[in-house]
Design a protein around this nucleic acid. Sequence first.
DNA 1: GCGCTAAGTTAGACTTATTCTAGATTTACA
DNA 2: TGTAAATCTAGAATAAGTCTAACTTAGCGC
Lengths: 146, 146
Amino acid sequence: MSSMSGELRQAFLAADVRPTVQRYAVLHYLARNRVHATAEEIFREVNRRDPRASRATVYNSLKSLARAGLVREVVSDGKAARFDASLHPHHHFVCERCGEVEDVAWFELPAGKAPLGARQVRSFEVVFRGVCEKCAAAQSLTGETE
Amino acid sequence: MSSMSGELRQAFLAADVRPTVQRYAVLHYLARNRVHATAEEIFREVNRRDPRASRATVYNSLKSLARAGLVREVVSDGKAARFDASLHPHHHFVCERCGEVEDVAWFELPAGKAPLGARQVRSFEVVFRGVCEKCAAAQSLTGETE
DNA sequence: GCGCTAAGTTAGACTTATTCTAGATTTACA
DNA sequence: TGTAAATCTAGAATAAGTCTAACTTAGCGC
Ligand SMILES: [Mn+2]
Ligand SMILES: [Mn+2]
Ligand SMILES: [Zn+2]
Ligand SMILES: [Zn+2]
């Protein structure tokens, strides 16, 4: 199948990932829906009206795309892994009430802060936890005991 | 069962967690073995010679202990959740080759760095990824193509 | 101590998440 | 085109975690 948009196709080739309809569908969904979707959600949406990829292929695609850096797996809390079309580096905020994972603009760590010894750091991410804006609002309306 | 060491017992009571043999066994294992164990590992080790807790109870205990702050769940990559007897705050380093999760000494984020808006941040953690010291050594011995 | 009640535990069934398998299909490239 | 390697598929298999209903135990007042 060669009906893939030229631009995306280049991205795949540049990243040394064979362009296939399935991989394209997965990446396309993630790029359009910036919601930290689970593999299951991606599977469902990608096959909504038109079967495109089996479950195994969604997992395989996510793995290939992640290896190539076109997608990244974000921190998950025990439950299903969540994915992100990482166009730009950023950090995450996880709401302890509703479970939403929100983006936080990127910032560097001041050099020399982290005592990492001889480890080779390839990337890092700051994960914040707390109460998101929406939940905080709902909370202040209600009794708000806790 | 009231044969729990006085010190631990106080910790439980202070944290408002009912002291039970099972919870004690789980916490004790985590405190003695600083290895970011999975629930399954804890289950196996805790019951090694002497049955102490069912699988469900290990999960329940971890949940109670985590809620009370006596234990924390560390970032995991899709696979099984890992736990840590969090005696002191610290960050983590995940080796992309062997999967080990190592501790990184705590450091604060410079105030004002993170653009978090109206979110209520309760905690944060920096997760580093890369190659651990051991794997880096093994790698430089071998051909080391990748 | 004794007895009551709420909280906690258990084994095992169940659900959900992810990986594996073996055969069919597609891609890259000459 | 022709071919080999890579990828895809449905479904089986495995792993991780939750739930249930019956059975203890901890906490508390007498
Ligand atoms: Mn994100
Ligand atoms: Mn740790
Ligand atoms: Zn929220
Ligand atoms: Zn390593």
